[in-house]
């Protein structure tokens, strides 16, 4: 397995953990800690989107010549998730537990099925298309993303 197929799925799991941390704080009504926990999650998921949109997807598009294929769909889903993240941020600021729970539920569904598509389809396609380049790209991605559990 190449680095890009290992680094990004591991970071998906990391983001899941951060998502759960923030959701639990909100459920407890501990808004001070929730703001920090959500901030951390938001920061990491944004970094993840950026890493894919600025490094992985352009490399894949250049290697395959496909710019309107799967990467366009993934970008579109990133946008959908960004708009839910903005709703979560607003709910967090307004201390609105109900709005947070609803947007979080929606984001989780979207995020999980998005991750599944990336991990089962797109990342293996990237590894195949990029060949030896994949490992170099993997190191670059690795450097951008936070590792391990906070």
């Amino acid at each position: 397995m190449t680095l890009s197929a290992q680094v990004l799925p591991a970071h998906h799991r990391h983001c899941d953990d951060l998502f759960v941390d923030a959701e639990e704080c909100v459920q407890r009504g501990d808004w001070a800690v929730a703001a920090t926990a959500f901030g951390h999650f938001h920061d990491q998921i944004n970094t993840h989107f950026d890493a894919e949109e600025t490094l992985l997807f352009p490399a894949f598009e250049a290697a395959t010549g496909m710019s309107s294929g799967p990467t366009q769909m993934m970008r579109h889903e990133h946008e959908q998730m960004r708009s839910l993240l903005a709703q979560l941020e607003a709910a967090c600021a307004a201390h609105d537990g109900e709005a947070y729970a609803g947007s979080a539920e929606t984001l989780l569904m979207l995020m999980q099925q998005h991750n599944m598509k990336e991990e089962n389809i797109l990342y293996p396609m990237c590894d195949q298309a990029l060949g030896p380049q994949a490992e170099i790209l993997g190191s670059k991605l690795d450097a951008m993303l936070e590792k391990g559990h906070a």
Binding site: E79, Q80, S83, L84, Q87, E98, A99, A101, G102, S103, E105, T106, M109
Partner: peptide, 14 residues
């Protein structure tokens, strides 16, 4: 979401 885009965000799942 597909129909309204971010201009008219739909109600959340809950």
């Amino acid at each position: 979401q597909q129909q309204g885009g971010s201009a008219i965000p739909p109600p959340n799942m809950k």
